[in-house]
């Protein structure tokens, strides 16, 4: 991409810079392409969201978005980069909450909510608390009762201090359970975690609707509750945790961030464009194909949720990591 974008992008950028200077000497933001650093390699979910937005963005921003890849450190490389970037509005980052909130805490990095300017959440995919259909837990209540009554229950997680682990910790806190009541099995990723469940080596996990849908249909898995504010179209009979009395909203949230100190009018320009992007038919079509919920595309509503997540995650994960 570097090669292609520099070959194609350089003359365009130069041309635009010259033209821009001639037509309008005042600061018209944006007057050149905005680079967006993706925190994971091309080809994954974050990249997919970036490409869906990028494809329609130039219609509403008068400039294009230039995808860049600053990967590594479980997503924190891009977040560190954007924290230190010049707040001129030409450098943004896109990452999920795993890289933007959870990994910085897990790695003990000197970052917090104020080090970034949240622009918009492109998508949110909630966790679904799921068991093997053969397990004794047929509801969240029976699971919590069992945990209260007897010894450690094994839970399969992607890794210690990852986004699904955090979801469990939120639930346990709401239920007044201590994390010591559980045996956390870290698998090193969502794929290996699912493998252990299908092979019958574990029975409890948080995963998203796309991953579990087939296994629910074939009777291997049983969804118990969704960690979102409303029920999912794929599983209309599965209650939300809020309905059950546990205020847990957790999942994978892919969002766009700017550097700290980005001026209010630039934030407003970007957010105005985001509000139009989320209505764009091409974007909606892409969301439909990938089973993403367009109502989770949040603009100004995103910042409070982001701050709340930082506060909760910092408290729960630091306790879980023992520091």
């Amino acid at each position: 991409m570097k090669i292609f974008s520099s070959i194609i992008g350089l003359p365009i950028a130069v041309g635009m810079a010259v033209a821009g200077a001639a037509i309008n000497a005042q600061d018209m933001y944006p007057d050149r392409p905005i680079s967006v650093a993706a925190c994971y390699p091309a080809g994954g979910g974050v990249d997919r969201n970036l490409r869906m937005v990028e494809r329609v963005a130039s219609k509403y921003l008068s400039q294009s978005l230039l995808p860049q890849y600053r990967t590594g450190g479980s997503g924190t490389v891009a977040m560190q980069y954007i924290k230190d970037a010049d707040p001129d509005g030409y450098d943004l980052a896109i990452c999920d909450n795993g890289g933007a909130i959870i990994a910085p805490i897990a790695q003990g990095l000197d970052l917090d909510a104020d080090d970034f300017t949240p622009i918009a959440q492109v998508s949110f995919v909630p966790w679904i608390m799921t068991t093997r259909a053969t397990s004794p837990y047929d509801s969240v209540e029976s699971f919590i009762a069992a945990a209260k009554a007897n010894g450690p229950i094994a839970i399969e997680i992607s890794d210690i201090a990852t986004s699904d682990h955090y979801g469990w910790l939120l639930l346990l806190k709401e239920a007044g359970l201590s994390a010591e009541k559980f045996k956390w099995n870290p698998h090193g990723g969502g794929g290996p975690k699912m493998r252990a469940i299908i092979a019958g080596e574990g029975e409890l996990l948080f995963d998203d609707a796309g991953e579990i849908e087939g296994y629910v249909k074939d009777g291997t898995l049983r969804p118990l509750a969704v960690a979102s504010s409303s029920r999912l179209a794929q599983f209309p009979d599965v209650p939300t945790m809020q309905e059950l009395g546990y205020d847990v909203i957790a999942g994978s949230s892919v969002a766009i961030y700017g550097p700290p100190g980005l001026s209010d009018d630039k934030v407003e320009t970007l957010q105005a464009a985001m509000r139009e992007i989320r209505e764009d038919p091409a974007l909606l079509k892409a969301f439909e194909l990938t089973l993403q919920d367009p109502t989770t595309f949040l603009v100004e509503e995103f910042e409070p949720a982001w701050r709340q997540d930082w506060a909760n995650a910092a408290e729960l994960l630091r306790a879980a990591l023992g520091n």
Partner: peptide, 16 residues
């Protein structure tokens, strides 16, 4: 990457 490309086409890999 292949899985992501399949999902983008509405083809979710899995038992079905």
């Amino acid at each position: 990457i292949l899985m992501s490309a399949l999902i983008a086409q509405g083809l979710q890999p899995g038992p079905f």
